[in-house]
Design a protein around this nucleic acid. Sequence first.
DNA 1: CTAGAACCTGACATTGATGTCAGAGGCAAG
DNA 2: CTTGCCTCTGACATCAATGTCAGGTTCTAG
Lengths: 133, 133
Amino acid sequence: MRIGELASRAGVSVRSLRYYEEQGLLTSTRSASGQRHYTDHEVERVVFIQRLFAAGLSSRTIAELLPCVDSPSEENSDAALERMAQEHDRLSERIADLVRTRDALAGLMAMAQAHRVTMAQAHRERLRSAVGD
Amino acid sequence: MRIGELASRAGVSVRSLRYYEEQGLLTSTRSASGQRHYTDHEVERVVFIQRLFAAGLSSRTIAELLPCVDSPSEENSDAALERMAQEHDRLSERIADLVRTRDALAGLMAMAQAHRVTMAQAHRERLRSAVGD
DNA sequence: CTAGAACCTGACATTGATGTCAGAGGCAAG
DNA sequence: CTTGCCTCTGACATCAATGTCAGGTTCTAG
């Protein structure tokens, strides 16, 4: 398939695909006229790359990890494996951090809610006493 | 305290503190000569702001949430509360996404490890057969 | 054959938080 | 008073992925 189709199937922009190639994350076979062609297999690859980007990995880091995906075991995977473990830990740490923040936010919401309820209750009581008993 | 001390106690740069003020996330009392002064209370606030930044909130969004922290219940907290709920959900979604990615990474590592073991085993067997039985 | 859509390269723009620098003024210790 | 450190404002730089535009080539449908 050509670049436009890959882009729409993987859900990224054409621009990004060219950028991925420039960064060595993606390769393409060129037609005689120079147009990029891809196999179905690349769709999955691009989606994975996107996932790593979304997880905050840099293109440089992704480039170090991908060989490990391509050839399940090269000599280089020695370093790559360590790199993956490192990124895995970094991700875990980041996740824990986000969870803490989310919980802090939830706590804040609960506090605001409670205050709101209190206020509403006070309001009801004001009303009741205004109506008189 | 002055800005330098706040920066070091909150673990951020002086530059960032001025930026936070510019974005309306932080206020300071100015001395006659124009220097910013803060109370101990601000340390905690800055740390919280940092946490929100790290969670991917923009300064604009943070600015919308902070009033809810300052005065536990203003009229505005109506919109702010909804905003917080929205960000809370966004965070949950993001966390789930990161977990998926981390697990994908873990799967990849396991695969590489397995392959490595297989290779090592093959190597041992080659050795054994070379030594002769 | 031709019009329109898709592709090519290359370059510049954008975003947002932060770094960095310059020039000027403030403050505390010797 | 001087020296050194801190602070001020304002401006420009940075990074990284992506957007966008321009000018040219290629493909495809009619």
